[in-house]
Design a protein around this nucleic acid. Structure first.
Length: 224
DNA sequence: AAATGAATCAACCGCAGAGAG
DNA sequence: CCTCTCTGCGGTTGATTCATT
C-alpha cells in the first residue's frame, strides 16, 4: 500500500511532467525580454508560476507592481495579476463550460452586454477572460450562423446593447428559452460535458487540494 | 502523411477610473 | 485642480491544437 508521501511525490512527478512538457513546448516561443527594462513577455514558464504562487501564498495578492518586483519576477504587475487571476488562483475552474453556465452567460449578457467581469462574478471559478473567449468563439459564431441561415441580416449582433431597442433585439435573438431550444443541439455533447477534458490532466484545483503549493514545499522543491 | 483552414485560449494592449501626493 | 501611478476591464492578437481535405 503506497504511503501518503509516495502518493504526493507521484503526484508531483505527474505535475512536473505535465508542466515541463507544456513549458518546454511554450519555451520554444522564447518569451521575449526587452533589453532595457528586462521585462519578460509571452507565455509563463513553470518556474515563474511557482515563484508567483509561492509569493502570494506567503504575502497575499495585490499591489501587483511591487509584488512583481519583490517576488523577483521580470514581469509587469499587470502580467502577474492576469496570470494569477486567470490561471493560478486555487479556485479557478478548468474544463468545459456546462450547459447551466452557458444559459447563465446568455442571460447575463442579454442583461449587461459585454460586462465580462460582472458576468464572471456570477459564475464561481470562471474568469472574465474565459467567458469572453467562450462568448466570442462559440456563442457569437453560432448566432451569426443562425442569422446567415435565417437570412435576417437586418438583425446585427451588437456588442454594446446600449439602447433598449438593441437590448430587446438581442433578447429576441437569444433569450434563454429560445436559446435553450435552438442552440443547445448546436453544441456537440462532448463540449458541454463538464470536465471531460481533464483526464490525465492535473488542474490547478487538484494541485491546490493536494497542498502541493504550500509555500514551504515550493521553496524546497523549486527547480533551480 | 502532408497541407490547409478553423477553433481555441493565453496573454498583450490601450483606455478609463480611482486614489495619492 | 493637476499630475502621476496603479488597477481593472474589454478588445485584440497570435501561437497552438484540432479537423478536414
Amino acid at each position: 500500500m503506497p504511503s501518503l508521501s509516495h502518493y504526493l511525490s507521484h503526484s508531483l512527478s505527474l505535475f512536473l511532467f505535465h508542466s515541463l512538457s507544456v513549458s518546454l513546448k511554450k519555451m520554444d516561443k522564447k518569451p521575449c525580454i526587452s533589453e532595457e527594462a528586462e521585462v519578460r513577455k509571452g507565455p509563463w514558464t513553470m518556474e515563474e508560476d511557482m515563484i508567483l504562487i509561492n509569493y502570494i501564498a506567503n504575502h497575499g495578492e495585490g499591489a501587483w507592481n511591487s509584488l512583481a518586483k519583490a517576488a523577483g519576477l521580470k514581469r509587469t504587475g499587470k502580467s502577474c495579476r492576469l496570470r494569477w487571476l486567470n490561471y493560478l488562483r486555487p479556485d479557478v475552474r478548468r474544463g468545459n463550460i456546462t450547459p447551466e453556465e452557458q444559459l447563465l452567460i446568455m442571460e447575463l449578457h442579454a442583461k449587461w452586454g459585454n460586462r465580462w467581469s460582472k458576468i464572471a462574478k456570477h459564475l464561481p471559478g470562471r474568469t472574465d477572460n474565459e467567458i469572453k473567449n467562450f462568448w466570442r468563439t462559440r456563442i457569437q459564431k453560432h448566432i451569426k450562423q443562425e442569422e446567415a441561415f435565417s437570412g435576417q441580416s437586418s438583425c446585427e449582433i451588437n456588442e454594446h446593447p446600449s439602447t433598449s431597442l438593441q437590448a430587446s433585439a438581442m433578447m429576441e435573438t437569444y433569450s434563454p428559452s429560445s436559446y435553450q431550444e435552438s442552440t443547445m443541439e448546436a453544441f456537440p455533447a462532448e463540449t458541454l460535458a463538464p470536465d471531460q477534458s481533464t483526464d490525465n490532466y492535473w488542474s490547478m484545483e487538484d494541485l491546490w487540494s493536494m497542498q502541493l503549493f504550500n509555500g514551504d514545499y515550493l521553496i524546497n522543491s523549486r527547480v533551480n
